[in-house]
Simulated scan of single mutants.
Amino acid sequence: MAKVSNRFLFQLHGWFSLPVWLIFCIVCLTGTIAVISHELTWLTNPASRALNPDALPEKTMPELISIVEKAYPTAKVSTAMNFEDYLVNAVIFTDTDKPVAVAYVNQYTGEIQEINQGMTFINFMRSLHAWLLFPWESNYSIGYYLVNLMAFVMLGALITGLLVYKKFWRSFTQPKLRVDQGKKTVLADLHKLAGVWSIWFLIVMSATGLWYLIQAVLWHADYTIEEHPPLAAISELPASSNKMTTEVATDSIPSISSAPPVSLANALEITKQKFPDFKSSYIMPIEHNRDTYKLYGEGDFIFYDKYAYGVTVNQWTGKIESVREPDEMTTLQTLSHIANPLHYGTIGGIWTKIIWFLFGVLLTGMSITGFMMWGGRTVRAARNTDVKSNEQEVV
């Protein structure tokens, strides 16, 4: 039996690495598309466009929720979300014939432009990129771990690439692309140029990917990065609700029996008194008598996400039960709120999204050209091995 050579083992090792390359390429490609998923939705779905030809003022999210509740009297609204100014707001609700539905409401005209009962393109791309659509079991997903482990692949590729490519900084001042010296040379030059010009992008993607991995471990370990919003005290409930609460088991929560004195619109005004520059982006109405209004949004910190500011308001007293703001965040909370803007390039609106998209294309191209070069070397090495074997047999 012929002895297995080290070269063959090395080639075999490379072929076994193919699934890693494939996952890495998919993650890069889906992430690139996810960066502009809002814009692609605007282009492809007219119902998602928040057109405002009459220059109407923007309605508040409580007003949009009321519009949906009037159109669907038996509906139960769970969430309202704001995206880009040119996209409609999304009001998520359930109804007797709709287990989960999303109402696309124009925040300027108040028109319900579409009812979506399936997965949206934005959610699909973000889910495919973040956890490859693997199922979630309890509080973890294997796909989420696989995607975030690619941060080590990216970081390793960056470090080893810079070590191999001597004097890489010359590509900034003297870029070299030799198109007349064959496919191998063109691929090598393209790969090197893209890699050098993407150093900053690779660092950002690696750092945020490593954070997502840490976050996944914390989730899996049931570690709470942000405390759950508090409930209203039983003593603050009206007499009828208070009596009903004492008659049921202590671990159950009574449903809403009457309209609370503090409305969602009131809660928004209270929030704006706390944060004058507050712009709501995620609102959750009350679900039961002890629940609080949850209002999250953005402020004047551009590197934080659209949920960095938050207030929970007591529906019976109007008291602010808890506050979320960048100045009071722990290190882990800060990381969780700055990771997404850096990862998806939303820190500067459409212009930074375009930059992130272009460098995402470069990164995807690098993974493809790198595989093509590796494949070419593997094929050539296999051919050389066959030629040498034939020559030895002839001798």
Score class of each variant (00 low, 15 high):
Ile199Lys: 11
Phe16Arg: 07
Ala267Ile: 09
Leu342Gly: 05
Leu56Cys: 13
Ile320Gln: 01
Gln273Phe: 02
Ala103Phe: 00
Asp386Ala: 15
Arg49Ile: 11
Thr292Ile: 01
Val395Lys: 02
Glu328Gly: 11
Lys98Ala: 08
Ser336Tyr: 10
Ala103Leu: 01
Gly375Asn: 13
Gly182Thr: 09
Ala151Asp: 11
Gly110Arg: 12
Met244Tyr: 05
Tyr223Met: 04
His191Trp: 03
Pro229Arg: 06
Asp180Leu: 13
Val102Gln: 06
Asn384Glu: 02
Ser198Ile: 02
Lys279Met: 13
Gln117Ala: 11
Ser241Gly: 09
Ser171Cys: 14
Asp300Val: 14
Leu29Cys: 05
Thr120Ile: 10
Val248Tyr: 15
Met1Gln: 15
Phe10Met: 07
Leu335Ile: 07
Met125Trp: 15
Met150His: 08
Gln117Trp: 03
Tyr304Asp: 06
Ile320Phe: 04
Asp95Gly: 11
Ser252Trp: 03
Met125Tyr: 04
Tyr86Phe: 11
Thr185Ile: 10
Trp169His: 14
Ala216Asp: 10
Pro285Asp: 12
Leu237Ala: 07
Ser5Asp: 00
Asp327Val: 06
Pro238His: 12
Ser37Ala: 10
Val105Arg: 01
Phe93Met: 09
Asn148Lys: 13
Thr271Glu: 00
Ile65Ala: 08
Leu149Asp: 10
Met81Leu: 06
Lys176Thr: 12
Tyr86Lys: 03
Glu328His: 14
Ala151Ser: 15
Ser241Leu: 09
Ala308Asn: 03
Glu287Arg: 07
Phe152Gly: 12
Asn52Gln: 13
Ala339Val: 01
Leu218Thr: 10
Thr245Ser: 05
Lys319Phe: 03
Leu133Glu: 02
Arg324Lys: 06
Leu18Trp: 14
Ser127Met: 08
Thr331Phe: 14
Ile320Gly: 02
Trp200Ile: 13
Leu210Asp: 02
Met119Tyr: 09
Phe168Leu: 00
Ser5Gln: 09
Tyr309Asn: 12
Asn6Cys: 14
Glu114Tyr: 00
Glu269Lys: 14
Leu29Gln: 02
Ala80Gly: 06
Ile26Thr: 04
Asp327Glu: 11
Phe301Tyr: 02
Val20Pro: 01
Cys25Ile: 11
Gly348Leu: 08
Leu335Val: 01
Leu202Asn: 12
Pro62Phe: 10
Ile65Pro: 00
Gln392Val: 14
Phe278Trp: 09
Asn340Glu: 14
Tyr282Asp: 04
Pro285Ala: 07
Val68Ser: 01
Phe168Asp: 08
Ser138Met: 09
Phe10Ile: 06
Glu328Val: 12
Ile159Thr: 04
Arg290Cys: 03
Val68Gly: 01
Pro341Cys: 09
Phe10His: 02
Tyr282Met: 03
Phe303Val: 12
Lys353Asn: 03
Asp97Cys: 03
Ala90Lys: 04
Asn148Arg: 03
Gln107His: 15
Pro19Arg: 07
Phe371Ala: 07
Ile225Phe: 02
Ile234Asn: 05
Glu58Gln: 14
Gly161Glu: 06
Leu12Asn: 15
Ile214Arg: 11
Val217Gln: 12
Ile115Asn: 04
Leu362Glu: 10
Ile159Lys: 14
Ser281Val: 05
Gly156Met: 05
Phe124Arg: 08
Ser66Leu: 08
Ile23Trp: 02
Leu149Pro: 00
Leu332Glu: 00
Gly156Glu: 08
Asn139Pro: 05
Gly299Val: 08
Thr173His: 13
Thr378Ile: 15
Gly297His: 05
Ile159Asp: 04
Ser389Val: 04
Trp15Gly: 14
Phe124Asn: 07
Lys176Arg: 10
Ile142Tyr: 11
